[in-house]
Amino acid sequence: MTAITRRHLLTAISGAAVARTMEASAQTTTVEKTLIAAARSKNLTYGAAMATWQTDRDVVLRRTFDRQCGTIVPEWEMKWGAIEGTRGTRNYTGADRVVSFAASHGLTCRGHAAIWYRNLPKWVEPALKAEGVEVMAAHIQDLMAHYKGKIKSWDIVNEAIEPKDGLADSLRNTPFLRQLGSDYIGRAFTIAAEADPNIQGFYNEYGLYHNDSKDHDRRTAVLALLQKLKQQGVPIYGLGIQGHHDLARPFDPSVFAAFLRDVAGLGLKILITELDIDDRSLSQTVSERDRLVAERATAFLTTALSERAVEGVLTWGLSDKYSWLNTSTYQKRSDGTMNRCLPYDENFQTKPFWYSLYYALRNAPSR
């Protein structure tokens, strides 16, 4: 790993200033400078989450994916509830459209997510209780078979840690844990790898980056889980770090760098999978909020990309217009303005966040 030096920290602090300077020339520079070009120059990847209801209605969004991204990931279309709401009736229509969009635009597609405790059909837990692991296995096997040769990078298990639930190993109290026991995570990876030996299976988790007790506990539990999986010989490729930042919570580059170093030391790759930056705690002007979002993005991305085990960055969307932080009623800002959480505003104009992302990718160590 490249150490987080004083120079890196100064780069992080000054990054937002660079972003503000570059924003003035957005209309001319983004023609030549793209996020995917910056990423590829260092053998990294950049991409974003998409949903078909968004791309169906918005040609500008489609063009932005085509121009800026190398990878896409479906927001909802591959989750169990979207595919098999009724047992025995599996519908891949929405997910297939995401994969087709990727193929038609020369992009790769990530799989998200095979096993997640949310967006889970109501029939699943009773079936798990009655029939055991074969219910989970059937779902994973069909998912891997359907996309064999089309999707390589997969979030196999998503958000299985929750320290506040108070259970052994800080595991989240989910239907899978209740009905299959604590080894369901390792079994899910093994089932997936047996179904498609060529996949790269990730464990994906949020809350690994803020410098407070809540995220400290989650980092500790996730690291222990990863160590256990490796010791057991589970075929896990890497850790997905979501990156849903809250500006009301602190970030310390040295603490995060140490965590990345520990994960890399297990022989695992790392991907930033769902980056966005929540500004609901801020009451400042839009321009000041943009500056603070860019500062956090620069500090986080400079730290992350200094670790050579990190293979790339995906933002959870491209434009504020379609962010879950603006489209989910319970997530919206109380003042009615847009959360300035993604690289593009609602009119697809680049913001300081875009430049923080661009320069972090372009200045990262080569892989």
Results as ranks from 00 to 15, higher is better:
E274P: 03
P250R: 03
Y322R: 01
F251T: 00
F176Q: 10
V18H: 03
Q349T: 04
I4A: 05
K214E: 15
H210Y: 07
G81W: 07
E134V: 15
R249E: 15
I191N: 04
M50C: 09
H244R: 12
R97E: 09
L9H: 02
M78A: 08
Q331D: 04
N198T: 05
A17T: 02
F256Q: 03
L325Y: 09
A360K: 01
P365T: 04
Y184L: 10
A24D: 00
T11W: 11
N204S: 11
G81I: 04
I277S: 00
P175Q: 10
A299M: 03
E23T: 01
V313S: 01
A258M: 10
K42I: 12
G207V: 03
A138Q: 15
E131V: 06
T2M: 14
R87D: 13
D212C: 00
T86A: 11
S356Q: 04
R296S: 05
Q27F: 06
N211Y: 15
Y209G: 09
Y203P: 04
N198R: 07
I277H: 01
A38K: 01
E162D: 05
K129D: 15
E274W: 13
L268C: 06
A38T: 05
L107Q: 09
R218T: 13
Y209M: 11
A48I: 01
G70D: 04
F300L: 12
E125P: 08
L226T: 08
A360R: 01
R362M: 00
A17L: 00
N204H: 12
R218I: 14
N119R: 10
R57L: 13
Y92E: 04
T337F: 01
M338C: 05
T86D: 06
R367E: 14
T303A: 10
P126V: 07
A137P: 14
D262G: 07
F65W: 07
Q27N: 11
T285A: 05
I185G: 14
T337R: 03
K42F: 11
E84F: 08
Q242F: 13
V255Y: 10
V31G: 01
R178V: 13
T350W: 02
S104Q: 09
T302C: 02
T350E: 04
L275P: 09
K129N: 14
E159R: 00
R57Q: 13
A138Y: 15
E75D: 10
L305E: 00
E295L: 13
R97N: 05
R340C: 01
A38I: 00
Y117W: 10
R67D: 08
Q141R: 12
L177I: 08
T55W: 06
S100E: 14
K214Q: 14
